[in-house]
Amino acid sequence: MRILGLDGVTFWYPATANPALENVSLDVGPGEIVALVGRGGAGASTLLLIAAGLAPRVTGGRLAGSVSRGARAGIVLPTPWTQVSGMAFTVWDEVAFGAANLGWPAHEITRHVDRALERLEIAALASRDPATLSGGELQRVIIAGILAMDPDLVVLDEPTAELDAEGTRAVWRLVRSLAAEGKAVLLATSDVDALPDVADRIAWLEQGSVRALGEPSLLAEDAMCDAGLGTTVAGLWHAAGLGAPYPLTVVDAVQRWR
């Protein structure tokens, strides 16, 4: 069973000759976390827009291949200030914006919004004006807004870009707990050091194509370290000329030394 399936997907943005994605195939099942890694312009954000059902429906452009999505998807974009509804003067209303748009009964909206606020540890901000929040706080509000809609597929584009270290850890914990509930998570991040503990599978994108797909140990392979996409520990091991397989994390490295 899969929640998202991309089979041979090629996508062109409007008025462009070269595809942003080329022949991409990827499945995401329930309870699974798939992380996309790659250099800027590799096509990760485009793939996420397709997964969320926004490309080509909203962005325009042309898609070849097939996309199957068996459930409702919600996407969090990297810049929180462009994602506020502009229609809410409190954080609670901002988080409730999407849930209200689904036409749910008021008590259902309240239940989901309160839960999302608690999960993002922002219940104390509920009565604040979103315009007065920091970038990190706003990012958590936006994520809460998507979770309040109870999507089966959660799509996250650089979800920790605006967050401090504690906020980043909280989001990764949240991602794991979402997967534990059976939700499928597809994310793109440059925080590769977190991925061994977060992701079930890694997809390495290069120039719009999937160059490699596999377990997080992929982040410790020579090719990824050469491309600067391995974890910091693996990169150090690789640069020092120590023998493969390289450790992924500090904990792995410590165990190896012992």
Partner: peptide, 24 residues
């Protein structure tokens, strides 16, 4: 530029779903 991103954000939050919104 912001219009582009806001369109995507609003779409994913159900603005264009055609369902009658619940008044909060």
């Amino acid at each position: 530029h912001e219009v582009d991103e806001r369109t995507l954000a609003l779409e994913t939050r159900g603005l264009g779903m055609g369902v009658r919104r619940t008044p909060l």
